Simulated assay, not measured.
Amino acid sequence: MPSLPSSSCLVSVLPEMSEELTELYRRGTPANTLRAWERDLVYIRAWKQLTFGTDMTWPEEERVALRFLLDHSTALHDPAHPAQGVALALIGLGLRRSLACPAPATLDRRIASWRSFHRMRNLASPFDAPAVSAARSKARRAADRPRKPKSAKPVTREVLETLLATCDYTARGIRDRAMLMLAFASGGRRRSEVTALDIEDVGADDYKTKGVIWLRLLETKTTTRALAPRLPLKGRAANALLDWLKVRPAGPGPLFRPVSTADRVLARRLAPDALRVILRHRLTQAGLPVDYASPHGLRAGFLTQAALDGVPLAAAMKLSLHSSAVQAQRYYADVEVEMNPATELLG
């Protein structure tokens, strides 16, 4: 198989404008989306080279889109299946995990990326063709499966208190306590949002008079820099963050930083996945399985706890920044069903 092409150029227009437009798309797209696009582009190119022996074309042919859809809408364990060899090669390249049917969400994301690549070139996507679109609808229904939560369990207040009890007063303990409490109390922040915070995003001017620290989120999954939300942090969470600011070296830059084995705060930014590592460490310290919850459990836990405490959904969404009430309502629905008095009709 030939080497995979570079994904540096996503725009195909007049040569004198391609570089500028590529840079414009990069600056105007969230970093997480860019990383997903690059991974999907590598995967799609490898799949087409292995399947058809050619590189991607623009616009792509409908038969290629339909073949991609069919090959990713069924399990490929049968050696007689013509797509098994390609799947095994993708597994060998580290681009596919198994011969099982990919999750519908994974296929949806890759198709969405492919469509985006066409839009960048002002071209029609083959996935919008009637035959391909209809096949996609049937494939989604055929591969439908129960929704799998992003975290095994929600990190509710009780679980969070257990984790916080493992945080001592070393620099690492103070940082971990501040990160966990900030992630939960500010609305269930995503791990990338927590590690992306800079000291300039923290406003403590109102703390002495109102007991409030303001957090500015420059970019989230559902907002942009132009509409950067400001979220309040109060009570113990605000105090924990102030404790960290006393330990963190003064100066601009990342709010949360790595701590060395000698308990010295380093200058660089934490990795985007740092909250997962910290959470797993605290779960282990608390005597819980490392897979008890993921960072998304803090987000799920915030909404679950809000439901348990009777907080109106709209109020919780003001902090969680969910763009869809339907998505946020799922956490409330589980609590409401459990507490429904109709479940006790037989005593």
Rank of each mutant, 00 (worst) to 15 (best):
A65I: 08
L93D: 15
L66F: 09
A89L: 10
L70V: 14
L123A: 01
P126H: 00
R157C: 03
E158Q: 13
V86I: 15
H118K: 03
M120R: 15
R109L: 04
D78L: 10
V64K: 01
A100Q: 13
E62T: 14
L163D: 07
P104K: 05
H72L: 15
A135D: 04
T74S: 15
C167M: 06
K148Q: 12
G94R: 08
E62Q: 13
A83M: 13
R115D: 00
A124S: 14
S137Y: 09
A80Y: 02
V64W: 09
A80V: 12
A134V: 06
K138Y: 12
L99H: 06
I91P: 04
L99R: 12
R140D: 05
D108I: 00
D128R: 11
D168H: 01
P154G: 05
E161T: 06
K138P: 06
S116F: 10
P82D: 13
A112V: 01
L160W: 05
N122Y: 05
I111A: 02
A129H: 13
P146A: 07
T166D: 04
L88K: 11
G173S: 01
L107D: 05
L95F: 07
A139F: 05
P104Q: 03
A105L: 07
T156W: 00
Y169G: 11
R67E: 15
G94C: 10
P104L: 03
S98P: 07
T162E: 14
A112K: 02
D168Q: 03
A134F: 03
S73Y: 08
A124D: 14
Q84M: 11
A112E: 08
A100I: 00
A139T: 08
D144Y: 08
D71P: 09
H81A: 14
D168C: 05
A135V: 08
F68V: 06
S73I: 11
A143N: 09
R115M: 07
H72R: 10
S98T: 15
A171E: 11
V132L: 02
N122G: 14
A65R: 02
P154K: 06
P79V: 03
A165F: 03
V132T: 11
A89S: 15
V86T: 15
D168W: 00
R140E: 12
D168L: 06
S125R: 01
H72E: 07
S113G: 03
L88G: 11
T170F: 00
D78C: 09
A89M: 13
D78N: 14
L107Q: 09
L76S: 10
I111C: 02
